[in-house]
Design a protein around this nucleic acid. Structure first.
Length: 222
DNA sequence: GACCAGGCACATC
DNA sequence: GATGTGCATGGT
C-alpha cells in the first residue's frame, strides 16, 4: 500500500468506527480560537467550563475579552488550568488582533494562509498546534493539525520514526492527502477520539479500530 | 495518590 | 540544537 492508501485506510476505519465528530465544538470563530488556546495540554471538559464562564460574562467577543484585566479574566478561566498563563495568552491574541487587524476576525480572510500562520506563531503562547487549529477550525484553511495523538498513532503503526518533528509529521499528511478542509477537520478529530479512547500513553488498546492493521508495534511501543 | 489531559516558552547544558 | 522544567485544574 502507498502512504496515501495507508492514511486513507486509517481514516476510513476510524470514521466507520466513530462516525463524524462534529468539530470544532464552538459556535463562533472567536469561541474556537479561545478554545484552542485554553485546551493546550488540558482536557476539553475543563475548557468547556471556562468557556461557559466567559459566555455567561458576555466576554466571548474580542472587544469584551480584551477589556478585561487579569484580575477579572483569570477567575473566569480558572477551570481550564494554567489560568494565569492562559489569561496572558488570550490577551496576547486579542492585542495582536486589535493592533494589526482592527479587532475584526473577518479581516483575516484576506491574509494568505502561510503568512497568517507565521503571524499567529509570532504571538507568544501560540505554537504550531494552536496556530494550525485556529487556521483549520476557525479560518477554514486546509491545514493538517498535528498533536500528541497524531504522533502516537503514526508511531505505533510504523508510519513514522518516533523522533520526527511537528512539521515533518504535518507534511506526511498534507503531502499525501487532498487539501480538503472537511477531510482534515474530521481526520484530526478522529485521531483525538482514538487517542482518548484507546491509544493511551500506557499502551492498552482493546477493541481499537486499528488493531488488525499490519503493524508490529501497535501495542508494544510507547 | 499517581497519572493524564486536543502545548508552549524559557532556562540550561 | 537537544533536553528539562514550570504552568494548574479536574477526571480516572
Amino acid at each position: 500500500m502507498t502512504m496515501r492508501q495507508q492514511l486513507m485506510d486509517i481514516y476510513q476505519r476510524l470514521f466507520d468506527a466513530f462516525g463524524p465528530q462534529h468539530w470544532w465544538p464552538g459556535q463562533t470563530r472567536f469561541e474556537i480560537i479561545v478554545g484552542a488556546i485554553l485546551t493546550q495540554n488540558t482536557s476539553w471538559t475543563n475548557v468547556a467550563r471556562a468557556i461557559a464562564n466567559l459566555q455567561a460574562a458576555g466576554c466571548l467577543e474580542p472587544d469584551r475579552l480584551h477589556a478585561l484585566d487579569a484580575a477579572e479574566l483569570e477567575p473566569l478561566i480558572r477551570p481550564a488550568g494554567y489560568f494565569r498563563l492562559k489569561a496572558k495568552r488570550l490577551r496576547n491574541f486579542t492585542q495582536w488582533l486589535f493592533d494589526e487587524y482592527g479587532g475584526a476576525l473577518e479581516t483575516l480572510d484576506a491574509v494568505e494562509t502561510r503568512r497568517l500562520r507565521e503571524e499567529l506563531l509570532g504571538i507568544s503562547g501560540i505554537g504550531p498546534e494552536t496556530a494550525d487549529s485556529i487556521l483549520l477550525y476557525a479560518m477554514d484553511r486546509p491545514v493538517f493539525v498535528v498533536d500528541t495523538y497524531t504522533a502516537r498513532v503514526a508511531v505505533r503503526h510504523g508510519l513514522i520514526e518516533p523522533d520526527i518533528n511537528y512539521e515533518q509529521l504535518q507534511y506526511l499528511f498534507e503531502s499525501n492527502l487532498e487539501p480538503d478542509v472537511t477531510l482534515f477537520n474530521e481526520y484530526h478529530a478522529l485521531l483525538v477520539r482514538t487517542g482518548k479512547d484507546f491509544c493511551k500513553p500506557t499502551p492498552r488498546c482493546p477493541a481499537c479500530p486499528l488493531n488488525d492493521l499490519p503493524h508490529e508495534i501497535h501495542i508494544e511501543s510507547t
